[in-house]
Design a protein around this nucleic acid. Structure first.
Lengths: 121, 121
DNA sequence: CTGTATCCTGAGGGATACTG
DNA sequence: CAGTATCCCTCAGGATACAG
């Protein structure tokens, strides 16, 4: 049962981005986390990852599919209806991934402060 | 108290690489893990990360320094003696990072199989 | 030993336009 | 709606040579 996606998951100042810890390509970890709540449609994923182009999202999704983390399911209607979903393997990644995100969130201020201090000196 | 570094930490087929899960830049996570055992010298780090050029290692180390994860210490001798060490912040990252590495190691075969199957079909 | 400087190539990834 | 096609540009990062 999907829960609503946040409107703006990707924000340079948001700890959930895992910045400066990037997992996979630029969007990989974010997409996995977006799928934690359940299957999502292509256009639905673009909202929280605001700024992502269709091309980039496609590329990242294909990459996750290739590694067996995400599955692609095509609906039966006349109009396109495609959902993406975590595979069991993908779901198994959620816990350690969220833990790393939690670390980033917890130490976010320290990371920003260190970076700011380094950029001054 | 530093323990010996493995001679070949970076291997495309080695689960410790976190491939296809890349943290930070190409070498960031590997370096952090190399420093888990204690302070290391520049040239010492190049061994397990075999293949890394001085330039790439410098770049990655500077990046980790900038984020406050690694500190750089210059020895007092006449000849250059530089060691790199995890900061408290860097050490706090070890646990979630190792957990993610453990996940990759545990599911390594599945990841490789999925990739191989995808590349065939 | 610990880097820096320079060159070079490929991959990442955004913008835009177009398609079934 | 869910992509694909094309263009283009930046940055990561390897090779090599050189320096303090």
């Amino acid at each position: 049962m999907p829960t609503p996606l946040p409107p703006d998951l990707f924000d340079e100042l948001c700890p959930s981005t895992l910045n400066p810890v990037r997992v996979g390509d630029k969007w990989g970890a974010m997409i996995v986390r977006c799928l934690e709540g359940g299957p999502r449609r292509f256009s639905e994923l673009r909202v929280p990852l605001h700024g992502i182009t269709a091309k980039s999202l496609t590329t990242s999704l294909r990459r996750l599919q290739r590694d067996g983390l995400v599955s692609r399911n095509v609906g039966a209607g006349r109009s396109p209806q495609v959902t993406y979903e975590l595979t069991p393997l993908g779901r198994s990644m959620i816990e350690p991934l969220n833990d790393l995100c939690a670390w980033a969130a917890e130490h976010w201020d320290e990371l920003l402060d260190a970076r700011e201090a380094a950029d001054l000196g």
